[in-house]
Structures are given as structure tokens and as C-alpha cells.
Amino acid sequence: MDLSFRDKQLIKQFKRGQNEALAVIYDRYVGLLLKVADGLTNNPDTAEDIVHDVFVKFAQSAETLKLQGSLKAYLITCVTNRARDRWRKLTPAIEPGEASTNAGPQQKAMQRETRHRIHQALAKLPDQQREVIILRLQANMKFHEIARMLSVSINTVQSRYRYGIEKLKHLLNGELKP
């Protein structure tokens, strides 16, 4: 797995105690991790808690951190593991989130409604299917990377993805009409 030299340098500086390197790592990955956490938990408050915990824990790991693969994959794995812990404890809260600031009032309302429906549909998926769909579509991970991360075969990942998309197609039938 690729470990870009920029991340290598940042990790090295982070391990040597440099605040700035940690701040750059945070700025690079916080948006992506929050998106993934939100997709996995369907709860923005829980997503914020997870990402907060992941970064605080990461800040404590300077001495012990030993990366085998990419920093991105490592951080996504931390978020995914924490999201899995929460699945057992929490019921998803459906939050429509903010609509695009450039849209007009009517368009904003429509965007909010669409987001709400996607949130609802994702929440109805089995956890394992939702996990693969979020990692593929929101974290931009490849199937073989997801397979390696979840320790399952690539065929399992692909079938979870296919079933998940099929189910979403059924649940979001209205959104697909032109």
C-alpha cells in the first residue's frame, strides 16, 4: 500500500513532537473522516464525537505509532472501528443537515429533503452494506483496499456493495425519477 512521502514526513515530524505537523494532518483529513463517520453512523453528533476521539487518541500515539500502510487508511480504520462500537449502542438520529449556501429557498428545501431521504435510506441498510458503500463512495477507497481493511475477501466486499446499492435503489425510488 502506498504511503506518500508527504505523509511520511508529517508522521516523522509528528513523532518528533512538532505541533505543526499534527495540525497539518488534522487539516488534511478531518473533513473526510467526518463525512465517513457521518455516513457510517447516520448521526452528525455521534460522527463529531468519533472524529474528535480519533484525533485526540492519535495525538497520544506519537511514541507508539507504527504505520504499515497509508495514513489515510489508518485514520479511516480508526473511525470505522469506533463507528462499529457505536452501532451496537445507538439508534440513528435522522438529521437532514445543511443545504448548499448558494441555493435559493426552494432549492434549499429540496436539497434538505433529498439529504433527509438519503440519510433515512442509508440508515435502513444493514451495517455491513452501509460500511462498504460509505468507504467506497465517500472515502473513495477501492474494493481491494476495503477488503484488506475489513479483513474479508474482495468478492464479499463487492457483493455487499451490490446488495446495498440495490436496496438503496428500491428505497430511493422517487429520487431516481427524472
Binding site: 513523532k15 513532537g17 499534527l22 472524529v51 474528535h52 484525533f55 485526540v56 495525538a59 497520544q60 506519537a62
Partner: peptide
């Protein structure tokens, strides 16, 4: 902002492997 502050505060409190 809050998450970044908490993270950096935790980092400063932790003992770094090598002094900067």
C-alpha cells in the same frame, strides 16, 4: 476549532519521543 484545540492540548501534555 474545538477538536483541533483539544487534540493539540493532548499532544502537548503527552511526552514526545524526541524533543523538538
Amino acid at each position: 476549532e474545538q477538536t483541533k484545540t483539544d487534540m493539540l492540548k493532548t499532544f502537548q501534555q503527552a511526552e514526545p519521543a524526541t524533543q523538538p
